[in-house]
Design a protein around this nucleic acid. Structure first.
Length: 575
RNA sequence: CGGGGCGUAGCUCAGCCUGGUAGAGCGCACGGUUCGGGACCGUGAGGCCGGAGGUUCAAAUCCUCUCGCCCCGACCA
């Protein structure tokens, strides 16, 4: 491809709305152009990167036995009502009506469509397992799209869905996808880690996220260097925390604590460590109010809490709701004397605190030396749960040696075991060898194409621009002719271009020939900005020096190479 | 949805407070000088100052409404 005929326009400045580096560099290097919030055109060079990534994904998916198809983006409401997600998915589901008033949505994911397809085609265990995938445009009406391709409203995703006859089969399908994803991200040259994830609204029994590690990532990950445990912070467990020393069997007593509405204030006033204080939060849930108690030095993990309490959402109760539920003002709630009708869940970590301090459900009053068994459980039910947010340096939940480290990552892939959640609701059943009907065991596997490309830039860039991993670069090689007006240079560059194309094409490597009538500085800056892994420079000077100059974007290492050696050297650099 | 901010040339922005001829840099076109890390000089094209309404002799500027966009929070397959 000759740059003079191509469509690749670079810019010195990034658009004002570009906040993260990948967005800035994609915009500056002419890869993407914003059309509306979270909606982007893939310009030709950007689309080449997407196509390369999609080719890798296709190759590895097919190698893992998945079969490609293409499902509609527009989906009728009926199947979403069957799965009940028409009601549960919320505002992110872009709904619409056709001219007859029939209701549709623009698919954010395709469990319903694929389940509807398979239930019509698959009748027997002999037809299983099946794994169907597509690479397709999705739409999610994100509350806050941002960061360019990292969190768009319209975006390209590879989604796969497996159907098995039993759980063992699902395990196999899941492991095959796990392995395929690992190969994909390795092939892309990305540093990533696989962590346990929260299942969220999609449901199911198990899920893992593939995280590309980057400080700008939107997801927080907890991991243990000692044993390899890794989990999204939304889900991360915590090992045994040190417990404050027990205080003996002294009875609970009420103490005056004027104006102390925070754990820190109470702890200071009473001269105890915050871990000895148990804080009680009142949450407003789909099923009414619920009280949540946790050690005072720790934060509630609302994702875990939502999983415990059920429903679609929760929020902290208002001061009025707190007062109505507990009889005391906000800031003085506690488990002692709470109405038995009010649901009480307590984090396991608080269970081991003997003789704790808690709110008295009266203004300016706390209880001290409280015992769960003696003072709370005797009067009402308690649900012991894990709703704690993991923090850095917490003990690892899996091994005794390690401690948790928190880092940030970009979620580029997510795999789920769905089990029979959809197949039961949508009656996707097959006949087993004994003639009995069973719902299919399903898995679903998503991989963000644009997000992966953006993550590659977050991981690979420097002051001058993008440093692509070679497999994802729009072109593997840029050939810059510095003096296109000079007959000798032009002839040498032209023939070098032809030769490079011939030599590299069989290996799947492509060449962009910068034959533009631009000054050398412009060509160098553009080549660095767009980030072609290998650069070949031909100019009057290089010819005098004996040929062309070959250099690598990543380390800048240059060498002058005789013209007839250039293709071999370039090929060597790319492998 | 709550809080904050911004919409002026293709891009980045000034002008607005204190109403009176719409500006700069980059980019673009043409001419010239340059030519190995985003050159320089000259000339030029390019704007419903997001939209609507209002105040005023007069609105980019003041007021109201509205649309779009960004940030923080809430929320989040």
């Amino acid at each position: 491809m000759r740059w003079s005929n191509y469509y690749l326009m670079t810019a010195r400045e990034a658009p004002r709305d570009a906040e993260v580096i990948s967005h800035q560099l994609m915009a500056r290097s002419g890869l993407i152009r914003r059309l509306a919030a979270g909606i982007y055109t893939m310009q030709p060079a950007g689309w080449r990167t997407m196509r390369k990534l999609m080719a890798i994904v296709r190759r590895e998916m097919e190698r893992a036995g998945a079969v490609e198809l293409s499902m509609p983006a527009i989906q009728p409401a009926e199947i979403w009502e069957e799965s009940e997600r028409w009601y549960k998915y919320g505002v992110e589901l872009l709904r619409m009506e056709d001219r007859h008033g029939r209701r549709f949505c623009f698919g954010p994911t395709h469990e319903e469509v694929v389940t509807d397809l398979v239930r019509r085609d698959v009748k027997s265990y002999r037809q299983l397992p099946i794994n169907l995938f597509q690479i397709q445009t999705k739409f999610r009406d994100e509350i806050r799209p941002r960061f360019g391709l990292m969190r768009g409203r319209e975006f390209i995703m590879k989604d796969a869905y497996s159907f098995d006859a039993n759980e063992e089969g699902l395990d196999r399908s899941y492991r095959a996808m796990h392995a395929a994803y690992s190969r994909i991200f390795e092939a892309c040259g990305l540093e990533f880690s696989v962590v346990e994830a929260d299942q969220g609204a999609i449901g199911g029994s198990s899920s893992h996220e593939f995280m590309v590690l980057a400080d700008t990532g939107e997801s927080a990950v907890a991991s243990c260097a000692a044993c390899g445990y890794g989990a999204n912070v939304e889900r991360a467990e915590v090992g045994e925390l040190p417990v404050p020393a027990p205080t003996g069997d002294e009875p609970a007593r009420e103490v005056e604590t004027p104006g102390t509405t925070t754990v820190a204030q109470v702890a200071e006033l009473l001269g105890v460590e915050p871990a000895r204080v148990v804080k009680t939060l009142i949450y407003d849930t789909d099923d009414g109010l619920a009280a949540v108690a946790i050690r005072g030095d720790r934060a509630v993990n609302e994702t875990k809490l939502l999983n415990v309490l059920g429903g679609l959402g929760l929020r902290l109760a208002t001061a009025e709701q707190v007062e109505a539920a507990t009889g005391g003002p906000l800031g003085f709630s506690g488990p002692v004397g709470l109405a038995a009708s009010l649901r009480l869940v307590v984090d396991e970590s608080a269970r081991k605190v003997a003789g704790f301090v808690c709110g008295a459900n009266r203004g300016d009053r706390h209880f001290a030396s409280v015992s769960w068994d003696r003072d709370v459980a005797s009067a009402r039910p308690i649900e012991w749960v894990d709703v704690m947010t993991a923090e850095a340096s917490d003990p690892c939940p899996r091994c005794s040696a390690g401690e948790l480290r928190l880092s940030r990552g970009i979620e580029v892939g997510h795999i789920f075991k769905l089990g029979t959640a959809y197949s039961e609701k949508m009656n996707c059943t097959f006949t087993d060898e004994h003639g009995r009907l069973h719902p299919a065991e399903m898995g679903c596997y998503g991989l963000g194409i644009g997000r992966t490309a953006a993550a590659a830039i977050e991981q690979g860039h420097d002051r001058d621009g993008i440093v692509w991993p070679a497999p994802l670069a729009p072109f593997a090689v840029v050939l810059s002719s510095l003096d296109p007006g000079d007959e000798a240079v032009r002839l040498a560059a032209d023939s070098l271009y032809e030769e490079l194309v011939d030599t590299l094409a069989p290996g799947g490597f492509d060449v962009l020939y910068d034959d533009r009538a631009e000054r050398p500085g412009v060509k160098f800056k553009d080549a660095d900005l767009v980030g072609f892994p290998v650069r070949v420079v031909v100019g009057a000077r290089s010819l005098r020096n004996g040929g062309a100059e070959v250099s690598a974007r990543r380390d800048g290492e240059r060498e002058v190479v005789a013209l007839d050696q250039v293709s071999d050297v370039v090929l060597g650099r790319l492998r």
